[in-house]
Amino acid sequence: MPDEIKSPVPAIELTGIRASSGTFEILSGVDVAFHEGRTSVVLGTAGSGKSTLIKTAAGLIVPDEGRVRFRGQDIFGFNRNEEIAFRAASGFVFQDAALWANTTILNNVFMPLRVHKPWMGPSEMAETARVLLSRLGYDEGMALRPADLSTGEQKLVSIARAIIHEPAVVFMDDPVSNLDEEAADRVYAIIDELRTQGRTLIIGANNSELAYRFADYLGVIKSGRIAIFGTYDQTVAGAEEALSASISRLRARGGRKSAAVGNETSQRSKP
């Protein structure tokens, strides 16, 4: 295990997680640590439990067993102020956007600002939302409702909502699903920028492109268990051939130009 994995308190740490839906067990015996200021990608096929893993890590699903810690503190033991502080420090991109259907796109995007930065005026919030959405390539009206948008546009709005308040930790559940190539490229640019700023990114994905481009740490979840998790190079080199088609594809692509973990030339600063 490399030093990075053993080093300081991880941003998010899951230990002994078991989660189920009714009698169906989704996660079992999950132990994984996501490191501060790093990008961790967990690959998994549909139904492997990666959405449940990301939601559990973000405290949106309460596991049947196990603990989730944010910087060493049990997130399910937070008092109200600690929980608000955690939410202010985190953002979540949902696989299916999960926009609030009964309100406008503008209200969807600037809600985190209203909650966590109430000192900003409405016009400042609206301007911040407009600038961010425009960078993501969203060019529809702000007064529209989510149902007026395509699923790809909804996804862009969902990404904007997750990062508008500049959280230190961003959870992303399949952030480029439903996006066309151009939109996906804009999302990649945003992810790259978040990485450069030293934010902790925890990404669940079912394709290898995100992992190839951004993963400092890479894991594979299979049938609700973390089959392998380590630095990108460790996982790509060490995973069994049959474990994941995505790993095979990554192996076939060879080494990356910018090795992530341990690449001290990357200009990162922690938020």
Partner: peptide, 20 residues
């Protein structure tokens, strides 16, 4: 029915995620 729809569409989780 409104709250039930919000649960199914993960809107409740989205409120939790922003701290509401």
């Amino acid at each position: 029915t409104e709250l039930g729809t919000m649960v199914v569409n993960h809107e409740i989780e989205a409120y939790l995620a922003v701290g509401l």
